Amino acid sequence: MTLRSLLLAASLVAFAGSALAHGDEHAHTPLHGGVVTEVKDMDYELVAKPGVVQLYLRDHGKPADVAKASARLTLLAGTDKQDIDLKPAGDRLEAAGSFKTAAGTKAVVVVRIDGKPASTARFTLR
């Protein structure tokens, strides 16, 4: 190996180690068994089951206050389209009913929090 190759390899190892050491603060892992996407430093976790749909919001890893929030969720499964209003339910936004939640279903949610501009998040259900 040349000196240049060794320096490049060492810098890549240092970068990877740094990313792993700081990985927790930027981890976008599901905490409730759903699908997670990030929009503007906010994590949106969608938990979609046939009888209930839940949306959890985390701001920089901390649960967001959803007491004054609302959301409009659209589920797209093939040619079927279902619009659902989500309302605050404790630490999440939620709706109960009968939902098409098969793997591959596309979901788009528009979230409004306490008068702030709306945010849009997109998901593909697993």
Rank of each mutant, 00 (worst) to 15 (best):
80 D>M: 13
119 S>L: 07
41 D>A: 14
51 G>N: 15
25 E>G: 10
101 T>C: 06
82 Q>F: 10
104 G>A: 10
76 L>M: 15
32 H>A: 11
66 V>M: 08
62 K>A: 14
65 D>Y: 04
96 A>G: 08
53 V>G: 03
25 E>S: 13
70 S>E: 03
44 Y>L: 11
63 P>E: 02
112 R>D: 08
82 Q>S: 08
99 F>P: 02
63 P>H: 02
61 G>A: 10
91 D>Q: 02
106 K>G: 01
98 S>L: 09
116 K>H: 14
28 H>E: 15
92 R>F: 00
97 G>Q: 07
65 D>P: 05
87 K>I: 12
119 S>I: 08
101 T>W: 01
107 A>L: 01
36 V>H: 05
33 G>L: 10
115 G>H: 06
90 G>A: 12
115 G>R: 05
37 T>N: 08
40 K>R: 05
25 E>H: 07
100 K>H: 11
64 A>L: 12
46 L>H: 02
43 D>P: 11
79 T>F: 11
51 G>R: 15
26 H>R: 14
61 G>D: 13
28 H>Q: 15
104 G>N: 10
48 A>C: 13
91 D>V: 01
86 L>A: 07
118 A>M: 06
43 D>Q: 14
103 A>C: 07
89 A>I: 01
46 L>E: 02
111 V>T: 01
98 S>W: 07
91 D>W: 00
116 K>A: 14
70 S>G: 13
118 A>R: 06
88 P>H: 08
93 L>Y: 00
33 G>F: 05
71 A>N: 06
27 A>F: 09
97 G>S: 06
50 P>N: 13
99 F>G: 01
31 L>H: 11
97 G>H: 07
32 H>T: 13
56 Y>H: 15
81 K>Y: 06
27 A>I: 06
51 G>C: 13
81 K>V: 14
70 S>I: 04
113 I>W: 04
28 H>D: 14
91 D>T: 07
83 D>K: 15
82 Q>H: 11
74 T>V: 14
87 K>C: 09
38 E>N: 12
56 Y>K: 13
93 L>Q: 00
39 V>L: 07
37 T>P: 02
108 V>A: 01
27 A>H: 02
55 L>T: 02
63 P>F: 01
106 K>E: 00
71 A>C: 06
61 G>P: 08
80 D>R: 12
52 V>H: 03
71 A>K: 01
76 L>N: 14
44 Y>Q: 02
115 G>C: 07
55 L>I: 09
89 A>H: 08
27 A>T: 03
120 T>D: 03
68 K>P: 02
36 V>D: 02
117 P>G: 02
88 P>M: 13
75 L>N: 07
80 D>G: 08
123 F>Y: 09
58 R>W: 14
35 V>H: 02
